[in-house]
Design a protein around this nucleic acid. Structure first.
Lengths: 101, 101
DNA sequence: ACAAATCAGTTTGTGCTACAAACTAGTCTG
DNA sequence: CAGACTAGTTTGTAGCACAAACTGATTTGT
């Protein structure tokens, strides 16, 4: 089995970025979750988390629903169908790298 | 088994960058190789390749030897001990991600 | 009652980095 | 010996990750 280097460079950079990879791995294990949970789990600052979520949303990889817990704003995030597929595909890329080196 | 998101963000960014990941995966499969081979295999431009190699060299992940093929300059690259270790460690990180998501 | 602190985020500014275009220094060819 | 080619390096720029500062509402302290 011969590794094709070009394939390595084809990884989805939107997912490849560690901060977003964290977010997506978390979202892949739960039905949905909120901003504050993601903030705690990832250790990202709010600003950073916010902008990464926006990017993932812009790519339709996640869906963001803004609602309220009582009177306090609540931001619910969940992986979209498209995001799930993209992540599965990304995992396959990683597997390909791990298995062929 | 519960995935720890923070571990995901700990990946070695020097290796994580796709262009450099290509370079390192190639170097991990050969004893050593030259600039032009890397250029062909990766599809990177010379400039881009040159700067990535410099970064890897600065981190002591690779060793670069400048010599001549006849009268024509020849740049030989090989993975260092440190680079090999770093790459093994990186692969373990990828494995961790693949196996826990 | 109203100032201060807290909550749940977003916007703005900055420094770094990947990338390609332009350049360099030497070699070969007609 | 002029022009093209080889093997790279340097320079300039656009984009991105990140944190600091801000926003706008709520709750707490006195």
């Amino acid at each position: 089995m011969r590794l094709n280097p070009r394939r390595v460079a084809e990884v989805d950079r939107l997912i490849h970025e560690p901060a977003r990879l964290m977010i997506i791995t978390i979202l892949s294990t739960v039905e949905s979750t909120d901003f504050l949970y993601l903030e705690r789990e990832t250790g990202l600052t709010k600003g950073n988390l916010s902008s990464h979520l926006s990017k993932l949303e812009a790519a339709d990889y996640i869906e963001i629903e803004k609602t309220y817990r009582g009177k306090i704003p609540l931001t619910i995030c969940k992986l979209s169908e498209k995001g799930e597929k993209a992540f599965l595909n990304y995992r396959d890329q990683l597997k390909y790298i791990v298995e062929n080196t």
